[in-house]
Design a protein around this nucleic acid. Structure first.
Length: 581
RNA sequence: GCACCGAUAGCUCAGCUGGAUAGAGUACCUGACUACGAAUCAGGGGGCCAGGGGUUCGAAUCCCUUUCGGUGCACCA
């Protein structure tokens, strides 16, 4: 049930009727007509912009349209008043029982309340994290992981068929570096003194890999030339790193559907096929790129390479797909990978990348646009940097000083739930300040606990009611008589609940899970407010002595609140807490 | 030099793809615990929405431009 959608279709019906009566011209586009909560509750329960949006195309005055529309809408049972205001807003008030009807519906539907069919089962691929398999995940990856995961859940909830995917960059030179670094740890495990020169990874997460290598190979690789062990160690250490990555992801509640290996593209002809596809469209050519304007690299020299004409699809310059020695650039397998996604039949692609990859957005979009003939949209969401703070001071990360904060550290220090909620309480394209002390502070300063507290309080009331012998089973609450409710403070909560399905669709439409976090905060606020009003006005307390039916109605209201909190937190991947003592 | 992202209350941020008098939290000032959890609530002050132009009935939101911050800029991934 989505009340805003219901009233929206009521408005559209009325407008269509006006067309058939000749009050409105026949050729009008209703796409921009919205029904939304007004900014100021004094204006009404819902407002529609229909008159203003249509005025121009209909060549009529907004207020004239609004007046006629108001009469039609007011005729509906659900509408108690329809007033024209300001430049042509139409403010609607709904009968209390319409709002209250959302309560049994929410309880009945449970964690699926608000689930939408908006996505129509369209296949969406969400690619996120995709960190190089060369070490543990760090703070930046964490944000991408949390954001991508919440977005995937959000889209799933909105009716899309979602695949969560991780692209393993296991084909490039960085994997050679990993293998050499692991070899050094292997030598160490065999009792040798080793030096980690520049260009190797000194992190101690490879110590265990070195020991595992010793267990597998004994000392048979010691002193052997690189050519004899490099390939094996690449394989062995990337597998070990991916185990690490999977563990890290699992610790923060992220589970991928597909791990796609870059290496698996080589030798299958897929890269060639993808580029042939572009070539057939006349988008591949041999050429020489202009030097970059501004600062010129010291070793710049004109080079003829195989180029992709990405400028045809909105990029600033054409991009090389082959190096001057004929080998593929990193971009070629990326193209093939996205080609594969298109071939797998996805209707929509979403990539979550760190802000440092901002330079790839245009070229990747160009490639997907070219490969799919513009049929498959690619949305690339960049997650901006995470700035760490401790005691209000910026916290500098340094691998050398050992102050490098990994996902593992983060989860150990503040927990998965707090990490997720805090990182989702921000737009993805705004930088995020993450203060260790603040997020751990269990106070109203911290939105995580504010929402959790509301949930815990509601459960507390349910326990109390149960002790008092009131039947608060799901069936009893669904059957409770909501006409016992009706105070403004109670209706305000019901209205907020009714907004949930609408908000969810908006968040999904814009790929913005942070809206859920903010909504939950507002919902919690409405609830806390109602709670405290019960102190001054005994009629607003949830448990009413000797009035079981009234108590049940009031409890059903807050039970509906907890249902929405639970559903919302579920999308964000945060566990609701029954108790917080 | 170019591209992308950001700039909203002292501070941290929302602002529902153009709507009504721009909102929360925090901090500061007042109040509310002898009944459901005070990790809460009620009230108050606090704004040139970075600056300037434009588009229109209407702009924090769209376009242009300037300034300041962040990120990235030939075969590395």
């Amino acid at each position: 049930m989505n009340l805003f959608a219901d009233i929206h279709s009521l408005v559209i019906d009325a407008l269509t009727q006006m067309q058939s009566e000749g009050t409105l011209p026949a050729d009008l586009d209703f796409a921009n007509v919205t029904v939304e909560p007004p900014r100021d509750a004094l204006h009404g329960d819902m407002a529609t912009n229909a008159a203003m949006v249509l005025a121009k195309a209909a060549r009529m005055k907004p207020r004239d349209i609004a007046d006629t529309l108001a009469i039609k809408l007011a005729a509906d049972d659900r509408i108690t008043s329809a007033d024209v205001a300001g430049p042509g807003f139409l403010n609607l008030r709904l009968a209390p029982d319409v709002w209250l009807s959302v309560i049994p519906d929410a309880i009945k539907t449970g964690n699926d309340f608000g689930r939408s069919t908006m996505g129509g089962g369209k296949k969406v691929n969400v690619e996120y994290v995709s960190a190089n398999p060369t070490g543990p995940l760090h703070v930046g990856h964490t944000r991408g992981a949390v954001f991508g995961d919440a977005l995937a859940s959000l889209l799933d909830f909105a009716g899309y068929n979602v695949t969560r995917e991780y692209y393993i960059n296991d084909g490039g030179a960085q994997v050679d570096v990993l293998a050499r670094s692991a070899y050094l740890r292997y030598l160490e495990a065999n009792g040798q003194e080793v030096q980690f020169v520049d260009g190797t990874y000194p992190g101690d997460y490879l110590v265990e890999v070195g020991e595992d290598l010793k267990a597998k190979y004994g000392d048979s690789l010691v002193g052997k030339p690189e050519s004899e062990w490099l390939a094996d160690l690449r394989e062995f250490s990337t597998a070990a790193m991916m185990d690490l990555v999977r563990k890290d992801l699992a610790s923060i509640g992220v589970k991928m559907d597909v791990f796609f290996s870059e290496k698996s593209l080589y030798g299958t002809g897929l890269i060639e096929t993808a580029l042939d596809n572009l070539d057939a469209k006349g988008l591949i050519y041999q050429g020489t790129l202009e030097p970059p304007k501004g600062k010129l690299p010291d070793d710049w020299e004109p080079r003829e390479q195989t180029l992709f004409k990405s400028t045809e699809h909105g990029d600033d310059v054409d991009r090389p797909v082959k190096k001057s020695d004929g080998a593929w650039t990193y971009f070629a397998p990326d193209i093939a990978y996205h080609y594969d996604k298109i071939e797998r039949g996805f209707d929509e692609l979403i990539d979550i990348l760190g802000a440092d990859h901002g330079g790839y957005v245009k070229r990747m979009k160009a490639a997907v646009s070219a490969l799919s003939d513009g049929k498959v949209p690619l949305d690339i969401k960049l997650t901006q940097l995470v700035r760490l703070y401790k005691n209000g001071e910026p916290f500098k990360m340094s691998k050398r000083a050992g102050t490098f904060i990994t996902l593992h550290d983060l989860v150990k220090l503040v927990g998965a739930d707090v990490t997720r909620f805090v990182m989702l309480t921000r737009k993805n394209d705004a930088p995020l300040d993450f203060d260790f002390d603040k997020v751990l502070d269990q106070s109203k300063d911290n939105p995580v606990f504010y929402v959790q507290y509301a949930y815990a309080r509601i459960n507390s009331v349910l326990r109390k009611a149960n002790e008092a012998g009131i039947d608060v089973s799901e069936t009893a609450l669904i059957a409770s008589d909501t006409s016992n409710l009706g105070h403004d403070a109670e209706l305000a909560v019901a209205r907020k609940i009714a907004e949930w399905p609408r908000l969810l669709e908006l968040a999904a439409k814009h790929n913005e899970p942070h809206r859920i976090a903010f909504y939950l905060y507002e919902l919690a606020s409405e609830f806390h407010s109602l709670w405290n009003r019960g102190k001054d006005d005994p009629d607003l307390r949830f448990l009413q002595d000797d009035k079981i039916a009234v108590s049940q109605a009031k409890i059903s209201l807050i039970r509906a609140v907890s249902v929405v909190i639970s559903a919302g937190l579920g999308i964000l991947g945060v566990t609701p807490m029954e108790e917080m003592r």
